[in-house]
Design a protein around this nucleic acid. Structure first.
Lengths: 253, 253
DNA sequence: CGATTCATTGAGAGGCTTCAATCAGCGTGG
DNA sequence: CCACGCTGATTGAAGCCTCTCAATGAATCG
């Protein structure tokens, strides 16, 4: 399981381009010898408001990052995949909770250790900044999504982002294995679970995706990537896939 | 005009608590001797995608930070007030556009200058991190707002945040002078201008706020702060104002 | 005083949510 | 092995909130 996650371990973020340098000049590597913690499915890594003692790097699995608001609802602000670093957000306390979706492993490091690792090694700083900057950019994209996009655009954007994340550069995957359940997707996209489900159905009927019937229907096949990119509504920031070459069995819209 | 902005110049952010130290240990002060640029109302400071050459600090006035999405709509991701620093987001290019709402002044500094100022002076680093962290926290709050809140909650949250921003610690302002127009508020809160207007009207009818009829109706009087905090739906993170002591001329809901 | 700009109000439509029922896998125990 | 129950996903119907389109109102400026 989690083919996607496993593949994405080595390289899937801009800052890894800095990893060419030798030694401990890569932020990821400072976690190399840190103790590993196992997390069962659904188990919390830390909880919003707790004292922020550690910084973590995801080893295997996927985590969800979320806040619980006053009426009990949950807002997922992001997902964490292998290699991702979490707990950076400075300040005394964690700004959000993080928990494993499926079984996961993380390497942990105390905050002071991490801080001095970064400040001591000036070559790590640009990478650190890039990390924070990426997080900020992601947050802004999410604001755009939540401000303007309808359900279909949200789902397509989400799938597309996931697809990019677990594709190696140049590779064109068609199939993705979503580690998270529909409720997670709903809480991430600011929709209800029913709307997520209905939107998937609509996308299937349009021939944009197909969903493998096994398990919990977490295996998604992107049948028409270009069309999906169009439906995501991000303008033309998409390197157009080959779409027409597909065995198109779509039911028209 | 812009009473609110003027008042908020000296202290209105958490990190200013670090400003007690002497010399150039305050991030704001590194801008002290930088050249000042004047910006007419509506004029851009920089545009999304431009090469990010400078970092800025707002002197007077208010700026809006926004993205234009593919269909031409605008998403405002935040507002900048006197003292705020902008352009931090690392990377080659600006992630968003920034322009003056009303006439504004900014001090500018080249990126390399700023970077070395921060890296050279270790005492500035925690403040710099706090700044970024604040920005991140604000982005997450915004995601919660856009994910879950209805129009009334959004407007109340917005007004409350603005109220806090331009209140000195301990002070309890009741009147705020919004520098931005309804369209700005709409684009910030993920609503249409009509919904913003209708929601204001509803809040007036409930006796929560009153709006001075002059000018462009940018002067808002918070009549029942506690009720407004309740309507903002942020749970009980509000230090309850005195509400009942007011001359309550509300029309019932 | 008309023209312009921004804000407000109204009516109708549409998309998403809510509540509820059904479906599909999968594990368990008889 | 199959019935049962459990969990998560899908589907349906109705209602509400917000958007869209359009008109009106209020204030400023030439």
């Amino acid at each position: 399981m989690h083919t996607a996650s496993e593949r994405s371990v080595p390289t899937h973020r801009t800052f890894t381009s800095l990893a060419g340098v030798s030694g401990e000049t890569c932020l990821r590597e400072v976690f190399g010898k840190q103790p590993v913690r196992q997390l069962g499915a659904g188990k919390p890594l830390f909880v919003e408001g707790e004292e922020a003692t550690h910084v973590f790097q995801v080893g295997q699995g996927t985590l969800r990052v979320f806040k619980i608001i006053s009426d009990g609802r949950r807002v997922i602000t992001g997902f964490l995949y292998p290699g991702d670093i979490i707990g950076l957000s400075v300040g005394q306390r964690y700004l959000y909770s993080a928990e494993a979706i499926s079984t996961a492993t993380v390497r942990e490091m105390t905050r002071p250790e991490f801080d001095s690792a970064v400040t001591d090694n000036p070559r790590l700083q640009p990478e650190f900044f890039a990390l924070v900057s990426d997080e900020m950019a992601a947050a802004q994209d999410q604001m755009v999504l939540l401000s303007c996009k309808n359900a279909e655009e949200r789902i397509c954007s989400f799938l597309l982002k996931f697809l990019k994340r677990c594709s190696l550069p140049g590779e064109r995957r068609r199939q993705i294995e979503l580690p998270m359940c529909r409720q997670d997707i709903a809480d991430y996209l600011g929709l209800t679970i029913e709307t997520v489900s209905r939107t998937f159905t609509r996308l299937i009927n349009k021939g944009v995706v197909s969903i493998e019937n096994g398990a919990l229907r977490h295996t998604i096949m992107i049948e028409r990537p270009t069309l999906m990119a169009k439906l995501a509504g991000d303008g033309n920031e998409v390197d157009s896939w080959d779409d027409q070459s597909m065995t198109g069995h779509h039911a028209g819209h």
